[in-house]
């Protein structure tokens, strides 16, 4: 999965990072898009965002990643960020059970506001702190399986699985888009969900002629 020039891409996928405050969403974002980690990354108020373009086969996919505030209070406004999202990383801190216990609530929140077809991965972050683990891997994996979510444990600090997590989500979205494209080969617009998502060039193609599946 190599980097490519930013302007040069065939697809744009909007992915949101959600989960409780302090689980490491901002550092997952910075690790993936800039290969950086910051012990004192600032509290996210409202939203942060960043992009990275990756190659999936022969197609260049620009991942637009939106990182949201975790504090419950902000949920009143975060739904505005979900609009048009085709992927989500639902992050919890595997050293804090409380952040895992509320995953279900986050999931509901997401399905209430995003497209039904959204690809969701449950991410247990901070795997570098395994001695302080409070959420067993199997428990989280089981929950993910039962709810049709992808699952991985990551460490934004030592980079473990960060690439893989985003890559897996993007591939899954890509597969869905490709499949949908086959199904609606004659129509020009490709969208994963309703017209809402397609309007802002979101999950569809940049220009029809760019697509080389």
């Amino acid at each position: 999965m190599g980097n490519r020039k930013e302007e040069d891409y065939n697809f744009v996928f909007k992915v949101v990072l959600i989960g409780e405050s302090g689980v490491g969403k901002t550092n997952l974002l910075s690790r993936f898009t800039r290969n950086e980690f910051n012990h004192d990354s600032r509290t996210t108020i409202g939203v942060e965002f960043s992009t990275r373009t990756v190659m999936l086969g022969t197609a260049a996919v620009k991942a637009q990643i939106w990182d949201t505030a975790g504090l419950e209070r902000y949920r009143a406004i975060t739904s505005a960020y979900y609009r048009g999202a085709v992927g989500a990383l639902l992050v919890f801190d595997l050293t804090k059970h409380q952040t895992y216990a509320v995953v279900e609530r986050w999931l509901k929140e997401l399905y209430d506001h995003a497209e039904a077809t959204i690809v969701v991965m449950l991410v247990g972050n901070k795997s570098d702190l395994s001695q302080a683990r409070e959420v067993p891997t199997d428990e989280a994996r089981m929950f993910a399986e039962n709810n049709g979510l992808l699952f991985l444990e990551t460490s934004a600090l030592d980079s473990t699985n960060v690439e893989l997590a985003f890559e897996t989500v993007l591939k899954e979205i890509f597969a869905k888009v490709s499949k949908q494209r086959q199904n609606s080969i004659r129509t020009n617009a490709i969208t994963l969900g309703s017209a809402q998502a397609g309007q802002e060039l979101g999950p569809g193609e940049k220009r029809a002629c760019c697509i080389s599946l």
Partner: peptide, 15 residues
């Protein structure tokens, strides 16, 4: 572009 005001004023106003 369907950019709700909360998307850009939240950080400015609240902080």
């Amino acid at each position: 572009q369907r950019i709700d005001p909360v998307l850009y004023i939240t950080q400015w106003f609240m902080c």
